[in-house]
Structures are given as C-alpha cells and as structure tokens.
Simulated scan of single mutants.
Amino acid sequence: MDDGPRDMRGREFELLVETALFSILDIESVEREPRLRADVRPDLVAHLRNGRTAIIEVKLVTPATSVRLDQAADTLRHYREAYVGVFGMSDPAPQLVLVVSGVLAPERISDLLELGVDIVIDGPALRQAAPELPWPDPVAGKRRGTTDAVVFRNAQLIEKLRQVAPGRADWPAHQRTVQDILAAVLSPPLALPLSEHPNRSRVNRRDIIFPNYADHGVWKFLRDHYQAHYVVVDTKNYVGSIKKNDILQTANYLNAHGAGLFGIITCRNSGDRSADVTRREQWIVHRKLIIVLNDDDLKQMVSFASDGSDPAIVVRQKVEDFRLGF
C-alpha cells in the first residue's frame, strides 16, 4: 500500500530535486549527504550565490499530518545544530528547506514556517520550476479526472468550511459541510454517504456513514485489518478541543457485528489529553480504532484531491502515527 508517487525511489527523486533547486534557490554548489556527525547526514547542503547556506530535507512521501510536519521540522533543526557545531554559527544562520513531492495545503506550509522551516517547496512548485524533468505523476490529476471544475468546486467547499463558525449554532451547517467535503474527496472509492443513520433500536444515530466496498488501496487495507466495513464519521463543531466523552460516544457506534471498528471524528481543532488517552484505551481493550481529523486535515485532503493525489494518504498517515506512537 504505497502512498508515494508512482514507483520512483527516494534517490531518484532527490536527484531531480537537486537539478530543480539550482534555479529555485540560485545554488552555486551542493553537497550530497555530507557527514556532520556520525549519525547526522542531511540530504543536501547547498551553498547559494548570495553567500548563504541552505540545509535541505527531501521527502518523496509528503508529510500530511501535524505529527509528521513536526518531525520534519525537528529533523531540519537538528541538522542545523549539527552544522553549526562543525562550521560555527554564520550570520545569517543556514536556511532550512523542506522539499516534498506532493502538494501541501497553505495551512500546512504556514505550520512549517511557524515551526522554523524557512522555505517549503512542494510538487507543484517543482513542476513549475522545471517542467522538462520527469517528475513523479506530473499529470496525475488529469488521469484521475481532476478538471478545473473539480478544483473550483473543492475550493468552494473549503471556503464554505471557513465560513462555518465553531459552536452549537452552526452545528448542522458544519455537519453538512464536512459530509460534502468527505464525499467529494473519498467517493469513490467509498460509496456515497448515509446521513443521520440510526441503528435498529434507534438509540444511536451516526452523523455520517460511508459504506466501504473498495477493492484496493488504503480503504481495502483498513477494511481487511481494522474492520472498516462502514466508515463512521462523527462531526464536532466545538469551539475548543474534543474530550474523553466524545471518543466514548463514537466508540459506542462501533461494533464488529454492525458498522465495524473504525471511526473518524472531525473537529475544528484537535483532541485534548483525555481524548488521546481514551483513543488508546479503546484500541488496546476493544480494538476500536478512532482517528481525529481537524480543519487543516480536511484542507490537506482537498489539496491532495485537487492535485490528483489520493486524499486517503491523510487517513493512512493518521493511522500510522497512532499505531507507531505506542
């Protein structure tokens, strides 16, 4: 289950990036994987014509979650610390540059800049700077039917999400908007969603359910390994973070004889510590896997869809982040 572009290997992509960066960053010379310490070797260190130095991290698989953005920024800061330890502090300090193969939503780029990354270069910027190079999936969007009309529709959906105010008053509008966004980016391969669907006793009424009949890719994997037969989505339009009780409510909707054991909570921000602990408990004790998608996650999924990439990359990385966090 590969979420990287076509079959390109990281080294091949890195060489393409190196070629494109000569024009993007106005590079004079570049070092590949210089050894700064025994265990510290950045992908590239570039010496620019303006006299500055750039430390460059190249990622074939685009980091799509906040956890992975934090990790990428932390890695670059670690490289700069090691570089300064070898060559001393320059004025100005070496620039930190992250290069990824896919598209990053503007909010993700802003997050990286706030985390101390100086320059972010994603797939569209690479293709624009060096269109003659054999970039991974340069026409992926056309093959997936990503027309200008679809891109415009996706932009409208994100604008609609921005206009929904957090809080109880706009709760119905938030649920409709989230359903429209997820339907636009996930159906197909998921079937069109069922809204406000009750169970037989009518005790539980699930906000959104996506039947999962996918025969390949992320969703088939989630059905086969996490019983995601029906993807239950619970929407929360809170001003603040979701909490323990919200996780328990979603967990109550999940069972092996019904919808399955995989659920998604969408919220405006994130979960607090009690929510994180409860998600872990639900997985350990009941094998119920619940991931949380906030506004920025939804925007990244839309960005992927508009560029022709698979929006389920965000879901896959959320699951990976959760499992590897144990």
Rank of each mutant, 00 (worst) to 15 (best):
V61S: 01
E81S: 13
L104D: 05
G141L: 03
S274P: 04
N154F: 09
L21P: 02
F13I: 00
Q282N: 12
G116Y: 06
Q179G: 02
Y79G: 03
V285C: 09
L186P: 02
F152L: 11
A155H: 10
L222T: 00
F13P: 01
L16Y: 06
H225L: 13
G102S: 07
L222Y: 05
E281F: 11
F152D: 14
L261M: 15
S309Q: 14
R287T: 09
I121G: 04
H257C: 08
G51K: 02
E114M: 10
E18G: 10
L69R: 11
I313V: 14
Q175V: 12
G325Q: 02
H174C: 13
D111Y: 12
S303L: 02
E132D: 15
R205K: 08
S309Y: 10
P42M: 13
G308M: 02
V233M: 00
L69P: 00
G217L: 08
G240R: 09
R32L: 04
P134S: 09
R144W: 06
S241L: 11
Q175H: 09
W135H: 03
L133I: 12
K220L: 13
V218R: 06
Q163H: 14
I56V: 14
P94N: 07
G123C: 05
A64P: 00
V45R: 04
R168C: 00
C267M: 09
R37V: 07
H225D: 11
P166Y: 07
A130K: 03
K142E: 14
V319G: 03
T235W: 03
S29G: 03
M8I: 15
V231I: 15
V58G: 01
R77V: 11
R168E: 14
F221Y: 14
S110M: 12
S306C: 06
H229L: 05
S195L: 15
D70V: 11
W283R: 10
T75W: 00
Q156N: 15
E81W: 08
E14C: 07
F87C: 05
P131A: 08
K243M: 04
T177L: 08
K243Y: 11
N255G: 01
R32W: 06
G51E: 05
V185W: 01
E132R: 05
A140S: 14
V185P: 06
R41P: 10
D310S: 10
G51W: 03
R6E: 13
G141E: 05
A251F: 05
D276L: 12
F322P: 00
A259T: 13
D295P: 02
T235V: 15
D234I: 07
Q156M: 15
D2E: 14
L48R: 14
H286F: 13
Q300W: 00
S187N: 11
V231M: 09
S270A: 13
R11V: 00
A251E: 07
A140F: 09
M8D: 08
Y253T: 01
N212C: 04
K59A: 06
N50D: 15
I27K: 00
D74N: 13
R32V: 09
P94L: 10
S110G: 14
I27M: 05
D137H: 07
A251L: 09
I158H: 07
A191E: 12
S29I: 05
D39Q: 11
G240S: 13
T266R: 03
N199A: 10
A46V: 04
